[in-house]
């Protein structure tokens, strides 16, 4: 139980990463794969955020006087994740637009059927 309590965030993050990768490995539908990518990215982001967690920490904002700086959570992972989220968003937007075009051209989203570029 203690283990679960200590590592629950990691388990969640790794679970998301695992699910994302699993979807990418076994699904054929492009939209599902894009969802998989999204889940993967979310998992990674959660993982990085978790790295900065501090037991009983507060948000790193000096909104009031006399806040203890060493009780604040690590601000860096938050900044990194902010960037990572935006990048994920960009990739997602691009992927979706490509999916629209792909459907226009091939009339299917099943990547098993779209194999013109090979060998």
């Amino acid at each position: 139980m203690d283990f679960l309590y200590n590592y629950i965030y990691y388990i969640g993050a790794f679970g998301l990463i695992l699910i994302g990768l699993y979807i990418l490995l076994v699904k054929h539908n492009l939209i599902k794969m894009i969802i998989g990518l999204s889940i993967l990215e979310t998992g990674v982001n959660l993982f990085i955020i978790t790295l900065g967690y501090l037991d009983n920490g507060t948000a790193p904002i000096f909104s009031k006087e006399n806040l203890e700086s060493n009780m604040m959570v690590d601000p860096v992972p938050q900044a990194l994740v902010l960037t990572a989220i935006v990048i994920g968003l960009a990739v997602l937007a691009l992927a979706l637009s490509l999916a629209i075009r792909l459907y226009d051209s091939f009339k299917t989203l099943n990547l098993k059927k779209i194999k013109e570029q090979k060998w």
Binding site: L25, M33, K112, K115
Partner: peptide, 13 residues
């Protein structure tokens, strides 16, 4: 060159 199967799932693999 047949290892480049054209199916993206195997590439991920």
């Amino acid at each position: 060159r047949k290892i480049y199967t054209g199916y993206v799932g195997s590439y991920v693999m």
